[in-house]
Design a protein around this nucleic acid. Sequence first.
RNA 1: GGCGAGGUUGCGGAGCGGUCAAACGCAACAGACUGUAAAUCUGUCGCCCAAGCGGCUUCGGAGGUUCGAAUCCUCCCCUCGCCA
Length: 435
Amino acid sequence: MTLQEQIAYLTKGCVDVVRESQLRAKLERAATSGDRLIVKVGFDPTAPDLHLGHTVLLRKMKHFQDLGHRVIFLIGDFTGLIGDPTGRSKTRPPLTREQIEENAETYKKQVFKLLDPESTEVGFNSGWLRALGSEGWIRLAARYNVAQMLERREFRQRYDAGRPIAIHEFLYPLAQAYDSVHLRADVELGGTDQLFNLNVGRDIMPAWDVEPQVVMTTPLLVGLDGTEKMSKSAANYVGITEPPAEMFGKIMSISDELMWSYHALLTDLSLAEIESLSARVASGAAHPKQVKIDLATRIVTDFHSAAAARTAAEAFERRFGRREVPTDADERLVAVPGDGRRLTAIMVDAGLAQSGAAATRVIAQGGVRIDGERVGDRFRVVAADQPPFILQVGRRALRIRPGSAGATASPDGDPADVPGAENAVSARAVKPGGR
RNA sequence: GGCGAGGUUGCGGAGCGGUCAAACGCAACAGACUGUAAAUCUGUCGCCCAAGCGGCUUCGGAGGUUCGAAUCCUCCCCUCGCCA
């Protein structure tokens, strides 16, 4: 790759690159001396559950690895150990050493789906930040001033509005900046919301006679709904540990417009390739659906395998293209007593309906099928000895295996299912049981 | 600390003693159309059932007034403005 190609590859999709000329210089120097650039990316030590939004950044890290550079996956455990009361509403309790270790392991498991474990170094910043001591911290703090801090829009707004800014909030960017000093980072990557923090690193590095890092930010990925940024709480995300079929289906559900930014941020296609694709769709030479299928296939391949992606694509086509009954649905064992069980109850059990009333409604609306046949009877009963069947509710489908009541049946509400649980927890605080 | 406004079913937001499970919009879900895209149209959108002018639990929390309360009273909790 020529230098120019390298720069194009590395900056593809980035929102900010401060500065490209310096990146060029560093790359040039690395090429001649044979040194590798040190690329630093910081992560929260809180429990990670990564989705495609996070992978935009991971992918950028991978690009640097592809070109042979050293990527440091830095876990910001220092602040995690202290606990951060910034979130005005809820105070974040300090994490224990064990929790942080555990989270780090979870991170690795997910992150290495994209990154090369061989050339990824995982680090923790508590070591050197602790070692700074009070004196060191004061010296560090002396390197920055309030006016500079207020350049950060969020601080500026709060300051102007007369809302409080705790002093320690000024300390976090400094801590992050000092990480760069310590690691002698050549490049620091982050989301666009990190721009300020990354630049603080740039600013203070010369005070330690370290060449300023190049700062590069990646955009926030828009979620499946096409409006909000992808996030777990907005329920518009694709988790990177989701099964292939699920992942494929979710990607197919995005709008045509959105798929271009997904191409740019979630694949390694070059901008030129994406543009030509887009042009072919615009001219009618390519069908947008096919382009989207290719996109979904690429993404599923990244997190699973080419074979899994192919299977998912075929199943998708059979099911939605030709409207066949899905054969690859996940199987769910549902307790059915000897005298049978109402279909509505089974739907709730399997997580295909929120309540019996909701299940009844979907049936009334013609949204429920058993082995492809529409169910019209809301009192339908499933017998205990019935062989497994495919239950479709709207766009979702599961293979239901009726099981003997003894083993799995629980007398009242059955928390057997995981899917509903997360909603239930967030929904309301624990109430003492009524009556 | 003082004064003012307010907390309603996922969100926004009506309701201000019975006809309120609570208007309307958004989101969501199902159906039609389709490419599980978009747009559009139709329907649904607290829970339970034997499904009905049916039962039950909801309108920040706890009490109270009343035949009857989301609506009135008391206390408490929380949020948001303005002033100090």
